[in-house]
């Protein structure tokens, strides 16, 4: 039995002594595909310096970018800034694609003393290989997710809508089990 996707509204999903999982308010999300020569112009249009190394993040005024692949970035911003950024990048005279993907994903925040351990429940990757202030696209129990590490024990996980109920349920069970274990 999975959590209903309609119940994934901003708020705390589960809170135990081990970890807390909460649903984040939906930001504006953009997916950018471009080649290296276009980066300086696109960065100037979007108001930040696009990171060139996979996993690196950069922040601008109200925007946040992560490099997911050699030619792929995701940009987070507030929903009302999306149209402005799209218009700004349309003026860049270099081949690129900037697509509004705001409706595609749900973001969960996972924090608490054993948050990293909770993630090892479904993620085969060494979580400590992701430095604080970085992020990676990886797999969590079969679903592709983007994991952002904001602090030692604070993560954000971007999940495609259709996988979100299953992963939210899994994290719920995991957080309860970890808490029961340490009791």
């Amino acid at each position: 039995m999975s959590i209903q996707i309609s119940s994934l509204t901003p708020g705390v999903l589960v809170e135990t002594r081990a970890a807390r999982v909460s649903t984040q308010p939906a930001p504006g999300r953009l997916s950018l595909r471009a080649r290296k020569p276009a980066l300086p112009a696109l960065g100037a249009a979007l108001g930040l310096t696009l990171p060139e190394c996979i996993g690196q993040r950069a922040a601008g005024d109200g925007t946040e970018a992560i490099c997911l692949g050699p030619d792929e970035w995701t940009i987070l911003t507030s929903a009302d800034l999306v149209a402005g950024l799209m218009a700004a990048s349309a003026g860049v005279d270099q081949p690129h694609s900037l697509v509004d993907i705001s409706g595609r994903e749900v973001t969960l925040r996972i924090d608490g003393p054993r948050a990293a351990e909770l993630l090892s429940l479904g993620c085969p990757r060494d979580i400590d290989g992701i430095a604080v202030g970085e992020g990676r696209r990886t797999v969590f129990d079969g679903a592709t997710v983007v994991l952002w590490r904001d602090a030692d024990n604070s993560f954000r996980m971007d999940i495609w809508n259709s996988f979100a109920p299953h992963l939210a349920q899994l994290l719920d069970i995991g957080a309860r089990e970890l808490a029961a274990e340490s009791a």
């Binding site: 996979i54 997911l68 692949g69 696209r137 990886t138 592709t144």
Partner: peptide, 10 residues
């Protein structure tokens, strides 16, 4: 050939 499906996608 391999593809880094759940990562950079390449």
């Amino acid at each position: 050939r391999w593809r880094h499906m759940h990562g950079c996608g390449r």
